[in-house]
């Protein structure tokens, strides 16, 4: 049975805007790395990377329109990785 694609199309302008945001964020992260020397350096860099990834996921990969199973699976995967990392650090941090 054919399932017609129901989600609306995207505008080229919109996609270009996302690219602009991604490039701008890249510049911000380079600047931050150069200028900010505080303890949260890694957090800031990863935070910006996370933001960029979210833009790609939502606007280029259209994660939201893919349905709850897909979005839920994505969150489950990322959560699994985060938990693996955290549990590993329960060893590494306290040796």
């Amino acid at each position: 049975m054919n399932e017609k694609e129901e989600s609306p199309g995207q505008s080229y302008g919109g996609l270009l805007a996302v690219l602009g945001a991604l490039l701008a964020l890249t510049a911000v992260s380079v600047a931050a790395a150069r200028l900010y020397t505080g303890p949260l350096r890694a957090g800031v860099a990863l935070g910006i990377a996370g933001l960029k990834s979210a833009l790609v996921l939502v606007f280029f990969m259209r994660l939201r329109e893919a349905g709850p199973a897909v979005a839920g699976g994505f969150l489950a995967t990322v959560l699994t990785l985060a938990v693996f990392m955290a549990l590993t650090f329960s060893d590494v941090l306290y040796r």
């Binding site: 549990l87 329960s90 060893d91 306290y94 040796r95």
Partner: peptide
């Protein structure tokens, strides 16, 4: 079951915190 793996490593030199947690 995906969160218990280091119980294979109790005597490996891992931290006590990890031993207790796992």
């Amino acid at each position: 079951g995906s969160l218990v793996w280091a119980h294979h490593m109790f005597v490996s030199g891992m931290s006590d915190v990890a031993v207790l947690l796992f």
